[in-house]
Structures are given as C-alpha cells and as structure tokens.
Simulated scan of single mutants.
Amino acid sequence: MEVKTRAIVLQTIKYGDAQLIVDFFTEKLGRVSFMVKIPKSSKAKMKRQLFQPLMILNLEFDHRPKANLQRLKDVFIALPFVDLPFSPYKLAMSMFLAELLGQATRNEQVNVPLFSFIEESVAWLDQAQGNYANFHIVFMVRLTFFLGFSPNLESGAHGDFFDLEEGRFVSFVPTHVHYLNKEDSLRMLGLLRLSYETMHLYTMSRLDRNRCVEVILQYYRIHVPGFPELKSFSVLQELFA
C-alpha cells in the first residue's frame, strides 16, 4: 500500500557506512521505522541532515505491514526550520524531547491529535525568539494528556501531596514512596497550569528547573512500562543557568 504522510524524526542509528535506521512518528500510521540508504553523491536527495531529531518531513513509501523496516521512496522537508538547528539551547532541547518521545511512544498507533501537538510544539520552539527556558517542562506535562496518564488538575484544590502513582493530589502522605512533598507538589500544580505563552512568567533557577524535569521523568517511569533513564538529560542539565 502506497502511503504519503507527514512524519517526525525521533531517532537515527547509523547502520554500516551508508545506511541509517530511522524511527519516525507518522501522522497516518503512528510509529514506523525505516532503513534509509544514504548515497555518497552530494546531489542525492537522501541526505543525513534530513534525519536530525524532530525534523518534520513528508514521506512517501510502499508500506509493508509485516516488515520491521520500511523503505523510503521519497522524502522532503515539510517544515523548514528557521532557528532550531542553529541554536545550541534549542538543539539540546530537541535531542532530549526526541529521546523522550522515542521511549514514550514506542507502541503508539495512529494518534492524529498527538502528532498535531508535537508538530505545533516543535514549530513554536523553532520560531521562539526568547522566553523558552521552560519549554521542555511544559511539553512533557502536556504530552501526558495525549498519552493517557495526565495528572488530575482538579484534585489540586483538595490536597497538599501529589501522588505520582495515582496522578492526583491527596490530603495525606501516601503509604508508598512515590509522592511529592508539599513544596514539589505546589510547584507541580503551578506547572500544570502553564502554556507556552505563559511559561516565562514562572521564574525558576536552573536547579529548580532540573528538579522539575527529574520529577516529571519519575512520573513517566511509573506510567510508561520500561521507560529508561534518558541519556540526553545530562546535556540539558547544564543549560539556562
């Protein structure tokens, strides 16, 4: 079956001297992996630069449902980036979020609202001229709403402790260890109310920001089976002093 779809690059692995294994989240089929041959000619259409983290592409391929790796027939950029590949801060964010998405959407089938959210978020980051230091945190929180384990915001009026297992605020200390103290719970409540447009109003130090990411990653590890430690987080921790 011939498929034409928009797709977001999540992970690229070098395979031999002239091939790549590329994992995409596609608009029409969800997660799909490809074996991509990169010709040596500088005039070739398939270039390594196309398959950088969070690149948004148009793909054309003959979909074989039983094949683990598909083969591309054609590819071209769907959303040309203006700033993201050239900003060290945005590039580090994109690497982190691509790794996060790669793990969180491993078994994701077609989910057009999720695809649209990712695409619109990446476009916002690319165009942002400033005030985006909290972008990855807001993205991580909002992503949970599309993956089915979003925190219960309404419960924030009824409790001082955030139960990471239940995904809600409670008025008592849970009997297990997966909960946030009052200070972290209050910060979580504030994060749940942020948008990309308002997040710059929430002032945090680098230490506070990293603590927020650690807490949210812990939440993901509880709710996404097999969710690992993210290697790119160490790079992100050094940004936005």
Rank of each mutant, 00 (worst) to 15 (best):
L125K: 04
T5M: 03
Y196G: 02
S234D: 15
V82W: 15
L189W: 08
A104W: 05
H200Y: 15
T105H: 06
A78L: 08
P113I: 13
S234W: 13
F240A: 00
I56A: 01
V110S: 02
N68K: 10
M95S: 08
L153Q: 08
P85M: 01
F24L: 08
A78K: 08
P228W: 12
S42A: 15
L72Q: 01
P225N: 08
I8H: 02
S150R: 09
I118L: 00
S185N: 03
Y15H: 09
V138S: 03
I118R: 05
S205D: 05
F139V: 10
G130P: 06
L239D: 06
A104N: 07
F86V: 11
L201R: 11
A98F: 05
F145D: 13
P225F: 11
T5E: 06
I56T: 05
L186M: 12
H176W: 09
P65K: 07
A241W: 14
V213L: 05
M93A: 05
L69R: 06
L191M: 08
V235E: 14
K37F: 15
D126Q: 11
Q11A: 10
L236M: 10
F145V: 03
E166L: 13
M55V: 10
K37P: 07
S234H: 14
S33L: 10
S94K: 03
I222C: 00
T144S: 13
Q109Y: 14
T203F: 09
A128S: 11
E165Q: 13
D160K: 05
V122I: 09
Q237E: 12
K90W: 12
K182E: 15
S171F: 12
M188L: 04
E166A: 12
P53G: 01
Y219Q: 02
R106F: 13
S195L: 04
L192G: 04
S87Q: 06
L236E: 08
F81L: 00
R71G: 07
